[in-house]
Design a protein around this nucleic acid. Structure first.
Lengths: 142, 142
DNA sequence: CGCAATCGGATCATATCGGTCCGATTGGAC
DNA sequence: GTCCAATCGGACCGATATGATCCGATTGCG
């Protein structure tokens, strides 16, 4: 019931990125590490995952870096957490995924997990990077 | 963002207990293990934690066992999860607890976590053992 | 008074996670 | 055109936390 520290770092990172450049300018992992205090290798790992998830766009080479691929207002905590931790599900027995759960048939609890998962996910989806960063002068993303 | 399997087992156990006896009769860990399919040692461990949390009352000795200390309607998922996993908090930086978070001062995200935690906890607190026992189509297990 | 059954705590193996390192790729500079 | 430097990307390794197993303490009954 506690998200991994990587996910926490990712939220902080994305929030810092949104606050810095509003998703327009390009920044590198080293700068972001200095800004947020997150260890550089961890930032790099997170950049990899976030890039694979399509939340940021990374560019290699000298002068490279990355930037938000979407406006901060359209990136939610759910997006970031899913990118880092995988699907948001409190239990492994989400429907659609066959499990080795030995009590699969007699389990009366399983039908209720989806509702709970949806509620949790909704709570996370309701918080965007824009609301996290509270950027004063850029309320409208380009 | 996924609760431990122990918590999952605990919910299944409590649900089974509520369904069996409605919190009145007394049952033992062995029977519950056979009913739910949860390994016996795990059931015993969970009984210990749940008993320590005050959710169930255990009795030692021959013919002992345990029973729900409260009606199923007044026991929620939040209670069970907190008993097994500790406080419900997505991050370690809940207010009131000093952290070694190096970005404590510059962290703009921290004030928002409490709202998210509250939303998640509310979603879990809204589901009680009584509602878990009620299966929509109520198929009688063999 | 002895025995059996049950909970309770302690111990150990396992798996996931977090941190670190090295290589592949790309842009710029000469 | 070639070399070099900076950066991302993936892979390896150690540490922490979790889950399962085992043994002892306690209690009721015969």
């Amino acid at each position: 019931m506690r998200l991994s520290s990587l996910a926490d770092y990712a939220v902080v990172m994305m929030s810092a990125a949104a606050r810095h450049c509003g998703g327009i300018a390009r920044l590198n992992a080293t700068l972001l590490s200095e800004e947020t205090g997150v260890p550089l290798p961890t930032v790099q790992k997170l950049v990899s995952r976030l890039s694979a998830a399509g939340l940021i766009e990374s560019t290699r080479g000298t002068g490279g870096g990355f930037r938000l691929s979407r406006p901060p207002a359209s990136i939610s905590l759910a997006d970031i957490i899913e990118a880092v931790e995988g699907p948001i599900a409190l239990t492994a027995c989400v429907d659609g995924a066959a499990q080795d759960c030995c009590i699969d048939q007699t389990c009366k609890v399983k039908p209720h997990w989806n509702a709970v998962n949806g509620a949790v996910r909704g709570a996370l989806a309701g918080v965007t990077l824009a609301s996290l960063s509270q950027v004063p002068n850029s309320p409208v993303p380009a």
